[in-house]
Design a protein around this nucleic acid. Structure first.
Lengths: 249, 249
DNA sequence: TTTGCACAGAATGTATCCAAAATGGCTTAT
DNA sequence: ATAAGCCATTTTGGATACATTCTGTGCAAA
């Protein structure tokens, strides 16, 4: 299964989950003793994990003062979308030069899978996870075709920004999803025709609009976005944490 | 001085230096005992430092098998330039909308400083470090003006790719430097005129050409690029390491 | 000769313990 | 009453010791 062999790796993964899912709240102090006990490990691997997460930007750190869950402003989130739009647009431009028979087929298969999942006039809840999976695969496939490892690396790290992740998709408005998938159609077609610039333009707008839509949704349904189901909802006992929050009063 | 308060932070910084300067060679195994002794610290902070460097991509790691200095292919280096070109071009586009009186003045001051450093018909060795400093400041200033923290973050992490760093500049051909600085002039002017797209285009080419030139130089003078002087050449005893290099033959 | 196993040595991963630094409350002087 | 300074407690950082995993060598069997 999971190739997480060491406590450190497990701790990194669990804490990432906990932070992205909101179990650990932004700004929250990460007490080493408590966290270590909570995860059932000692402070050594925990500290290592925290350092790693600090490097990847999910937690902040001050010497001799400890670790805190990093707080992201809306500007951070918006910036993440902006950069993601540029990076993935670049990926499209590059991918257009690297298309192969197989790559083309792969993209169209993903698009068709999306068609199936959206074939009714709504997205049934049981199709939500598969659709998200398809979406991730589609974007990842293009970045792989771009044959530039940095694009993937950076886009992945942008997915660690709470609201900028692929795991957050606005499921309220079916038309938006349909239109978004329409973009996928056009991108795949453009790429297969070697129209890199066109694919890039569509991709840029595809992601830019996602931000705009997120913004709208946030104003309309504020505070409804931190409890996001994870892609891999295996049981985690790291959850039993934020009970005793109020006794700070 | 340096705000590195803990051994861990010192270790991170030293090892980054050692790797980027080539004292630790690509692919080299990083023995924890030896390294710890070498740095005069115990394995605990060293391991933390290694984990951090692994996250930021300078070293690779396999569970229970240890850390290695990451090897970069030329494709990696080329990809780093490619992405850097896009990111910094984006920074220009964004910066153009955020220009202020002070920002404009700052950019022009940097450009003029470059003029002074290049005023003779060659770059005297004692001007090398100041010029490089100016160059870093210029690029950083634009990214700051873009007001998108991710651009800076990612470009900084691309500077951790050995040959893609600002610390590697081809000093052989004075005309290339002059022309490169000419780009700075035009970028500053374009930004001050609100010509974001133009600035972006110049910046993209500015960086793309740097790669092309690096490529040429690598073919012409291979193997001459790993011994790069560091910006901050304070004495480091981590150096006393690569004596026994030839006995790999 | 080659393949597989076992054991010894070494290196990694983790826990525990100690030192250093910071936080918070208290006293004291103004 | 307020503010500065000092001490106790808490928390972090690092060193050491222990457990686990891996590697490589040698021997035995096919």
């Amino acid at each position: 299964m999971s190739d997480l062999h060491t406590s450190t790796e497990v701790a990194i993964e669990r804490m990432r989950e906990a932070i992205l899912s909101g179990d650990l709240r932004p700004g929250e102090k990460l007490h080493q003793d408590k966290l270590a006990e909570m995860l059932g490990i000692s402070r050594t691997p925990l500290r290592t994990a925290l350092t790693a997460l600090a490097q990847s930007g999910l937690v902040s750190y001050e010497s001799n003062r400890g670790f805190y869950v990093r707080e992201f402003s809306f500007a951070d989130v918006a910036g993440a979308f902006q950069v993601r739009a540029e990076l993935e647009a670049t990926a499209c431009r590059l991918a257009a030069s690297n298309m192969s028979e197989a790559a083309e087929r792969n993209l169209f298969e993903l698009v068709e899978e999306g068609d199936r999942l959206l074939s009714s006039d709504s997205l049934p809840p049981e199709n939500l996870v598969p659709y998200r999976r398809m979406n991730v695969c589609f974007h990842t496939a293009i970045m792989n075709l771009a044959a530039n490892p940095w694009i993937r690396t950076f886009v992945e790290s942008l997915h660690n920004v709470p609201l900028a992740s692929d795991r957050v998709i606005m499921w309220r408005d079916f038309y938006v999803i349909r239109r978004s998938h329409d973009d996928h159609h056009r991108i795949a077609r453009a790429l297969s025709l070697g129209q890199g610039e066109r694919a890039a333009a569509i991709m840029r707008e595809h992601i830019t609009f996602a931000l705009e839509h997120l913004h709208t949704q946030l104003e309309q349904f504020p505070g409804d976005f931190l409890r996001v189901p994870t892609v891999d909802p295996r049981p985690k006992r790291a959850r039993a944490r934020n009970q005793n929050r109020r006794n700070t009063a």
